[in-house]
Design a protein around this nucleic acid. Sequence first.
RNA 1: GCCCCCAUCGUCUAGCGGCCUAGGACGUGGCCCUCUCAAGGCCAAAACCGGGAUUCGAAUUCCCGUGGGGGCACCA
Length: 482
Amino acid sequence: MLERFYGSMVRTRFAPSPTGYMHIGNLRTALYAYLTARRHQGVFILRIEDTDQGRNIPEAVAAIYKGLQLAGLDYDEGPDKDGGYGPYIQSERLPIYQEHAQRLLEMGAAFRCFCRKEDQPEGDDAPTRRDPCRLLTPAQVEEKMTAGESFVIRQRIPDGGSTTFRDHVYGEITVENAQLDDQVLLKSDGFPTYNFANVVDDHLMAISHVMRGQEYLSSTPKYNLLYRNFGWEVPEYVHLPLIVKEDGTKFSKRLGDPSFEDLVKMGYLPEAIVNYIALLGWSPGNDQEFFTLAELEKVFSIDRINKSSAAFSFDKLTWLNGEHIRALSLEAFHELALAYYPPELADYDTLKISELLQVRTEKLTEIPEMVTFFAAVPDYDVELYIHDKSKSDLATSLAVLKGVLPLLAEIKTFNNDNLFLMLKQFGKENGFKTGTVMWPIRTALSGVPATPGGATALAEILGREETLRRVAAGIAKLEAAV
RNA sequence: GCCCCCAUCGUCUAGCGGCCUAGGACGUGGCCCUCUCAAGGCCAAAACCGGGAUUCGAAUUCCCGUGGGGGCACCA
């Protein structure tokens, strides 16, 4: 399906409006556009769509750069990377839109509309598709203009007929022109609407594949009419299915759903989010689910994009995040984990702690909770020593702890392997299962029912001195209870 | 209201007329491993929205219905 472009350059673009954050749907659009460009040795372009003067957030453009960088989507052309098709910020292209609107006016494909915004009907039903101003005579237009009345420029939709276009994922779509409205192309403030700017820019920037959300599907015929008016070749269209929540409602930042940046703050790795997002609406055709960006660049294909909307599953993202965490080198994971360790852990060998944590961490944010016991044993219930599976109860626990205390004090090399062998031997000699020996020690050392690593691993990290102190405290606690 | 789109396990999906007693993954349940918890291994429950039509044969093609989503802004 892409044959037509194998001979020429594939150029895709990501054209966000500066809202201050990277919406998940936008991230996926950017990803797919990026992957399509990379897959065909094409060019990926960043264009800023800041044509809504009432909605611009000053720092928002920086957020776009940051988001793309975080995701690893580097662009070949953009505001700060001139590729000869600039400017790449729409607010800097105003004369271009005005000139093109003028051409449309001259060929009769557009007209000036002097209606006041307040006069426009805004009901849910029976929208006026044909604007009354399209009937104004040149003299009337002249009169209103000299009177200084403000106006917008609207597209003149043909009265009859229909418009058909082909979309790569949705196939052929036909819409009656009667269904299309005389949309505004140029606002009264001189800025273009998205509907106009995207057509002009996509053509002028030689975009080969227009990739965007499915919400633009029904207005695409209007864009095609514009391309036809200008005599331009229509680009390839690739509309992407929506991303929704598991309850089927829209995934929206405004409704409290996290943005890309929010997800990172929640402890998800950017590469895991990118991996997960790639699978939301696309599948490789085999069973592989773990992908690095580099791998995606090799296998991504427009032909395998799905039509139906996909629900965002935090469960699956979390699992995939765990996969990415485990795929990290210990050093890389350690560096990430460091930021989540409480300062009290500084006394310990945190690299060893990281080693225990890596296989047990699904989200970085759950790290603090998993390691607090290293800093201090919480006030735990003595019942914690009772554990059926380990055949451990208060009596065995007390006996084990007491028997093991001197051994721990004497053992020459205080490390995981030696401790394990020694304690196992202790169990054998005293008729205890290994688990019966380990359970009370682990409990005394941590005060929590589950820890990253077992008794001996914790002991090694805590060191002989602290281990003895905690075991002694455990003995005291048990003696008080018995 | 009008127009457009979509429809396989709870979720993401494979399937592009016979290979389907519908495959994989997440999640869920069980077992194994085991020094707790994870990780890992094994197993289980779990789906083709409904009705017609085409065909020797339909999850796959067509039509109708139903359900869901999107659009109809001087927002993108």
